[in-house]
Design a protein around this nucleic acid. Sequence first.
DNA 1: GTCTATATTTAGATAGAC
DNA 2: GTCTATCTAAATATAGAC
Lengths: 254, 254
Amino acid sequence: MRTKPAAAAKPRRNGSKRKAQVPGERSGARRGDATRLSILDAAEWSFAQSGFDGVSLRTITERADVDLALANYHFGSKENLLHEVIARRARIVHDERVQALELARQQAGTKSPSIEAIVSAFLAPMLRHLADGDAGWRYYASLVSQLDVLPKFTALASAVLDPTALHFINALRLAMPKAPEASVYWGYMFLLGTMVQVISATGRIERLSRGLCRSNDVDAALREIVPFVSGGLRALEHDPEKWKPVFRKDHATE
Amino acid sequence: MRTKPAAAAKPRRNGSKRKAQVPGERSGARRGDATRLSILDAAEWSFAQSGFDGVSLRTITERADVDLALANYHFGSKENLLHEVIARRARIVHDERVQALELARQQAGTKSPSIEAIVSAFLAPMLRHLADGDAGWRYYASLVSQLDVLPKFTALASAVLDPTALHFINALRLAMPKAPEASVYWGYMFLLGTMVQVISATGRIERLSRGLCRSNDVDAALREIVPFVSGGLRALEHDPEKWKPVFRKDHATE
DNA sequence: GTCTATATTTAGATAGAC
DNA sequence: GTCTATCTAAATATAGAC
């Protein structure tokens, strides 16, 4: 939407933050770090609530209780701010998922881990964070859900999600030996979509179930989502000709 | 984000469009209808690509090849334009889904329709439109996916999706008699999330599978998604204590 | 690193001629 | 119904004092 955005992104680096400070006057650098954190947290919350284009840097810096100019000073541009908001938690989840998958591999010995174990390794790290005290994870999760379905940010979403994806697609392929190659990819997409719907905090299930289900009840969610996805993936191993459609190609209306 | 948006929404009604026209000079009203359609189509495409806040009325009217002022003349406000973009197709899908469900009920006789039949009744109408010639349905689908996960538009998304939801939750309850009440709600959310991931045209499955799967291959998608969701729902009928988690409550990192 | 002030562009919306 | 012209507010970003 900007006319000349290409120029001045990333004017500074993380490594050289604590430099060029007068010795003994350490409060400057510390305050700078605190400012960065405040902006990141405020941006995470604001982007999650209203979307990237739905909030202004003014709103973000007001929420962070810092001066407007500090957003561009610390992050160079609004778009780069989004990148850093995503990056700081994306790495963590990715590593935890890969480690959980590795753990499942070790526990399985020479066989492939079960479908349930693989699905759990993918879902549990994210859902556990949602149950933690840090509310930031909930906003991060909502934000990732939005990027996942917004064509404008497909590149960013892919950079965040795809590295993890390849690990789990390979693991699923081994756990579903009878499934066609294409079904494994579809299955991973379904796994992703199921998770996204759960972690996008829209409150729909509360409203639909009139309070019976709560999306922040992580234990309940895991108890439902792991069997669902696992059972669904297992169904992809069967011959798809077994069920016959009950609908016709032409629509019933008009 | 506007300061005084409450005032002048919906300054005109649909029913009184073709009035106050000089007899014989019919081209005026017809041109007005064409303008309305152009704006709706351009908005549908633009909102889908960049999100509601990611595109301006200028961009939309330029794409529609009409004057900027006509957007507010015909729709009153940008937000109301979004409402009308959604409404024009939401009604159609809702009706088709309910009719497909009714057809499944008739074919099942005195029994409940199968889970597969219910899932198909929900998914097939939308996916069939995606395979049709009208590309607008693909943009509509992408837009609905975005609204589904954006907290800012939860109210609009609920107004579109929830009426359909209640029909299918009731049907699923009868088809899954052994499942706990809460599992039926979770199951519907998973069904929704799976569909949203498929109809949000982000091209991720193409990239991940390096062209093996194509998201616009509706027949392939239906062949995978119906068994997946049905198998997943069936798994929710089983005792959840049957599988034991392989992860621990504490995270592996830090 | 922070803040004041401002440059520059773009946004949604409207008034009034035709 | 359409178009020209414009109002007003808000956006991102930056320059320069401290």
